Structures are given as C-alpha cells and as structure tokens.
Computed example of a mutant assay.
Amino acid sequence: MTSEHSAPGETSRLAVAKTCKLYLGGAFPRSESGRVYPVRGADGALLANAALASRKDVRDAVAAARKAFPGWAGATAYNRGQVLFRIAEVLEGRRAQFAAEVAAAEGIGADAAGRAVDASIDRVVWFAGWTDKISTVLGGANPVAGPYFSFSVPEPTGVVGVLAPQESSLLGLVSVLAPVLATGCTAVVITSAERPLPAVALAEVLATSDVPAGAANLLTGLAAELGPWLASHADVNALDLTGADPELRPELERAAAGTVTRVLRAPRGEPDWTAAPGLERLRACTELKTVWHPIGT
C-alpha cells in the first residue's frame, strides 16, 4: 500500500499531525489550561485539535504585548514597513500551504483559496506602504492666531485587542492585524474559533518575519469566553470588535468602558474583505498629540 508520502514500492506512512499551539510573546506555548478543541473542515472532516485559550492566556498575551510596545512603537516607520513587507514575502513563499489551509477551512475551491491568499499578501504590502505616510496624512499643521506654530502628530495608542473575523480565516485576519502593526501598536488577537488553522500557520510566519516577540499575539479559542477578559483588561488601550457576535458586542463595549478603552465597533453585516481598505483602522490605532511652540525661539 502506498500513500501520497510514499514512492511506488515503498510502505505507506502516516503524515505527521500538526500540533496547534498559541502564539504568545514570540513563543508557541500550549494553553495553560491544557484544553484543546476539535477543528473541522467545511466538509465535517477533523483537521486538527487547537489549543483552547483561557483567561490566564489572555493575561499573559496582554503582558507580552505591553512589554513589546515601547520597542515596536519606537521603531522607525521605515523599519516597521520593512517588517510588514517581510511578512508578505514569507506568505508568498508559503502560498501553496496557505491556499490549502484556507480551502479546507472555508470550504472553497483551490482557485478561490489562491485568490484569498494573494489578496492577503497584497493587503499586508498595502499596509506596509502606509507606515511612513501615517504621520503626514493623519497629522498636520494647525492654523493659530498668535506668535506660535501648532502641529498634531499621530502616535500609536498602545495595546490593541482584536476579535478577528469568524468567516474570513486569513484575509479578514490580516486585514485587522496589519493596521495594528503598521501604526506601531501591539496586538492580542482572538482568532476565528471554527477556522483557526490559517491563523496558526500565520503565527509561524510572524515568528520568522522579524516581528518582535510580543508585538503580535494570536490566541485560538472562543470569543465569548475570552472576549470579556480582553475587553475589561486595564492594560488594553483599544478594542476591535470586528469578529464579535452581535449578541456579545454590548457586553464587550460595557467592559471596555470600565477602563476607558477605545472601541472600534464592528460593521453591520459581514464585511467584504476583498474591497480596498480605507484609513479607518489606522485612525483607530492612533492618537493625536498636539504641540505648541513659540515662533522665533
């Protein structure tokens, strides 16, 4: 008997099953709870067992993101753009793997999955190009009456909690993660619960793409369980509710209000992730610092 891993005449062998872990602080730990849950493809077939993150994992991820924030926010815009472009390069090199992951997760054909991967790569490149333009476009000089000049400069807001889209396992994920990194913020992302495997593969790309440890943290698990802990965490500065269920959103907004966390509300309906992105997510991850200075001194 032969298999796809055996040459004619050789005995068959089992494929090496993938061990899915969290991506936290630049490492790949199992959930501290030891829990896992089955991940099934669109056809119902068992694909893998994914780590089921816990409250402690959320706390550890936020701590890692906070620790990484000064270094990542202090990097030059050029450097951040190069790191994002490196992510796109590695994605390009693993295109076939990601296309297979997306096809299995979303139940779409090979051509459609390939287009989704290509769009994901292009999306990362698009945000990479924005890193050195954010200050110019979102900031500016302010008109004042008097011997002063005044200007506003966008700065990264800090640690951003992200509930990733549930349906778009890769393109939606990179569309919400890339702007966080482009602005100099650090991210804690709760991935799609039913379709986490493309996110697990993306974590491997992040780990080999010069992204500083802790700048991006990906947790697999249930948004209903993890979302409230992320939203109420006092060290989270902004919260993206894109992937939250409509029933869960009010609870998360109330939890975020308790720590005065900025909230990017989820769009109505399922977003069209293939559409060209705008500046909304970049704005949501920045805060304006306005400086006044006397003229002539």
Rank of each mutant, 00 (worst) to 15 (best):
A284C: 01
R265F: 04
E167H: 12
T76D: 04
N237R: 11
G25W: 11
L47N: 05
I87C: 03
G140C: 10
V236W: 03
C185I: 01
A53M: 06
E10Q: 08
A223G: 08
G296V: 11
F85E: 07
A27R: 15
T131I: 03
P70E: 08
Q82D: 12
D240Q: 11
N79E: 15
A216K: 13
V90M: 12
R35H: 09
T261H: 11
L248M: 08
S6F: 00
L230Y: 04
A105E: 09
A164N: 09
E204C: 05
G81K: 07
A234H: 13
L197M: 03
P38F: 04
E89H: 03
A275Q: 14
V16G: 05
A53F: 04
L173R: 13
A216F: 15
G71H: 07
E204Y: 02
W292A: 02
V263H: 01
E106D: 12
V189N: 03
D57Q: 06
K56S: 15
R265A: 07
P294H: 07
G172T: 15
L177E: 06
A7L: 06
P70H: 00
R80H: 08
A110C: 02
R40W: 06
V263L: 09
K289D: 06
E101P: 13
V36I: 15
S6H: 10
R30M: 01
W126K: 01
S168P: 13
L226I: 05
T131E: 01
D57V: 05
T242Y: 02
D60H: 13
V90Q: 13
Y37H: 02
L206D: 00
T11H: 14
